[in-house]
Design a protein around this nucleic acid. Sequence first.
DNA 1: CGGCCGTTTGACGCGGGTCAAGTGATGTGG
DNA 2: CCACATCACTTGACCCGCGTCAAACGGCCG
Lengths: 246, 246
Amino acid sequence: MSVSNCGLADRLECWIALTPAERRALARLEEKPRPIRRGMVLLDERGRSEDLFVVRDGMLMCYVLLDDGRRQIVRFLFSGDLFSLSALAYGRSPDTVVAMSNATVCAFDRSEVARLATDHPRLMSLLLVLNQIERVITTDRLAGLGRTSARTRVATLLLALRAQMRQAGMDVDTAFSPGLTQEEMGDAIGLTAVHVNRMLRQLEEEGMIAREGGRVILHDEERLARQVGYVDRYEGLDLSWLPPGR
Amino acid sequence: MSVSNCGLADRLECWIALTPAERRALARLEEKPRPIRRGMVLLDERGRSEDLFVVRDGMLMCYVLLDDGRRQIVRFLFSGDLFSLSALAYGRSPDTVVAMSNATVCAFDRSEVARLATDHPRLMSLLLVLNQIERVITTDRLAGLGRTSARTRVATLLLALRAQMRQAGMDVDTAFSPGLTQEEMGDAIGLTAVHVNRMLRQLEEEGMIAREGGRVILHDEERLARQVGYVDRYEGLDLSWLPPGR
DNA sequence: CGGCCGTTTGACGCGGGTCAAGTGATGTGG
DNA sequence: CCACATCACTTGACCCGCGTCAAACGGCCG
């Protein structure tokens, strides 16, 4: 898996040109890098946690466990992603966050958000925009879980992971490494590992994808995306309304 | 269905005391009330729409249609709810918004958000908080669709609707009127109308609920909530980090 | 070499979908 | 005020996609 040092500022810089003061304000959020090892539980579903985080490097996931022990993976995190924003509402994490690879994250206090709100209205507005993008993506997944077939869900997961990794500045080609076990894929899209396997094989037999080791090759991405109705939500942004930067 | 004139300001006032200036700023968002009739399509999934909205009165829903004609209801809206925030990111609506009852909504321009960001950092922070609450609720629904039984989903929908209506200031008792057809319930939780019916009857036979006309009585709400692992996400907020109001 | 974890594949069962028929309620035009 | 249409709700019979269980298989690491 290739890595690019893609911080929060780099992500935002893709949308708009930041002022020096804004860049400095964002840098404050990444002052305390903390390396974590693959498999480590960073936040627990029950635990109190007033901190917010930025991913500096690596891959993590957020999931919830149901009473019967089943797991629903809620979100995957890559370099430049913000997480645990729910600390702003509850002072606790509603889900568990685990590192799927060795990773580096930076914690910052909620008061930093208050400071952003006061000093950098444009950055605060961008936070709201990021939130909206994620909300729409989550909504797409909701519709996928509620109303689409297993085959469609698996294909959509591959397309979405690739888009997210590209967004994080990783150099994904038509071939890339999802970096998940089939059980994890299933837990992300509401299927069993066994059935994920069957669908991957089916997609392979259809010639839509190829697999070797952990890598996946999307043979006809266009057609696959059209078939399953996949939309890249990182495209088509309109930020013309933002207040001026400070 | 009882109605209380619950605006955005009243909703926020439940969490914190607003300053006069903040109240005035919020009132600006509700200056253009617009009555809409039951069944009317307010926003279309494809259409451009740069406006945001507050619900002043009534009930609406947001849904997406899939290629095969199936529908996934994404969210229900009540008095005091903000919607179409995704206009901030895309300048268009990713879903269709329809009035389920006669309703009144107030549109406001994206520039009002820019103004809020500049002049009222605490209100802008609260917007972020509201977003987080909704994100967590959406996440709960995601886990429900991916990993729980039909019975659990139906029961959870009833509990969640009631919590949301109470939050909107409607006087819901142990008995209340969901105001949805069984087909709409199914489209919200990924089931067919037929199966929703079967589950409602089962819950009734178990003595968990009773029904008469459109009304539903939750006989043992405590036990039902425990059984299906329902959590009211409007409770347990911690807003101590907010910047001072202006 | 041996154990473990992830993958693969097959056989079988079940929860929920599909189809279809029937029952009220509401509404609407004559 | 009635005849008829419509729409939501019910209920039963049947089917299928996906879950479950079980048994290999293969690669990696100690």
